[in-house]
Design a binder for these strands. Structure first.
Lengths: 123, 123, 123, 123
DNA sequence: GTGGTCTAGACCACA
DNA sequence: GTGGTCTAGACCACA
């Protein structure tokens, strides 16, 4: 379910964060589903438990999951999650497009990139 | 001409890198223009010369500027620079769009963002 | 394992770079093997950690190793490494041959050198 | 006659050195021909006179030219020059080939490079 | 423990 | 003057 690329320069806790986001987006994880316990996941992935904790902590701060001591960590109601996640994605996209415009990439070239990404598996 | 945000988490050498890119994009710096000498810029910005060096070195590795001992640092011929800069922008845009798609932003929503950014001052 | 010549005019970080390449070529270092930590190697060789860092950074930029904070530095998958290393060797060889041609060494003389190097231990 | 690439990372005095070698190899400069005076060449190329001096000094040390105070610099007898130059080229070629062999480039691949360089304008 | 960023400052080759 | 190499050493985020 979770996949980590140890060769990537992206911090593991960041990759874990995105894993959860992706699983929610794909509908694999739904509202109130339980996430794997920190220590169990740490063993499965061969990763330091602190690293898992950090990922969960960030997800909690961003309103994606909620944790209760002794019971574990759970996915927040989907609507809220989706809003939080998409807002981040929009902000990233806006930055990338402003940058593209700045360096002389024109509108039709930008649209071409959109077409390429969304070709095939339209979602 | 160069502006550094010392509060930012973004490394200073990275900010300097982007400063140079921006100045070239804006046409303030052109082919074969001389950049400020490492040590002079270090004093102006209140930054260590090594940090400036690192930024210049990265720009050189990416084909944006060239440096020669005893002469200074200069902007590369425009064609090469533009290619290098746009290639980076495309890569950033692709990442942002893949992320948007992953979190459930659909194609027409992505296009709307493109339209917003490119409205008015079409380039 | 690593040998540095402090008398040489060749920068230490450059010598370290070649040391790693050599150890990979010889099969002493293989895919995903861990390199010595920056600071440990610095102490062993009596060299500043920054100098080791610089060598590792260059190797990373050239696709030979990858480094992650907290985990260490590792050799990239063999295929990629081999490609990177051989590409450098080809470039060096091309330069040497162009120079040879320029100074009047003819083709059969160049071939003789090739024969001499590859005599005996054909690889 | 002399061409300098100011964008190259190769020191100018080194480029000048090679210019002279090339002109001798091509037969443009012959035994006892006079080289341009240091100061005249410096003005022509827009280069510091010290830089020209350094190039001439190195050529003299390597037995390629000889200088007499007040009269100028001259090309040494061709036989001697050729021997000196080619010896350097052979040494460079040997190093490049040993390196190529070390990193797993085999003999026929090396020969292919030779063929490519010497194709067309066989000398 | 591990690499990354940064300061402070010396010395070098080249122009 | 100009960039390149190197030392010494501090502090940081990540594991």
């Amino acid at each position: 379910m979770f996949t980590i690329n140890f060769q990537s320069r992206e911090p593991i806790y960041e990759q874990l964060y995105k894993n959860v986001i992706r699983l929610i987006s794909l509908g694999v994880l739904n509202s109130n589903d339980k996430l794997p316990p920190v220590r169990q996941l740490a063993i499965e992935l061969g990763v330091n438990p602190n690293t898992i904790s950090k990922a969960y902590k960030n997800l909690e701060n961003d309103g994606v999951i909620y944790s209760t001591v002794g019971r574990g960590s759970f996915v927040c109601p989907t609507a809220k999650v989706t809003a939080a996640i998409q807002s981040q994605a929009y902000s990233l996209l806006t930055t990338a497009l402003e940058n593209a415009k700045d360096v002389g990439i024109n509108k039709s070239e930008a649209i071409q990139v959109v077409n390429k990404i969304y070709s095939g598996g339209e979602k």
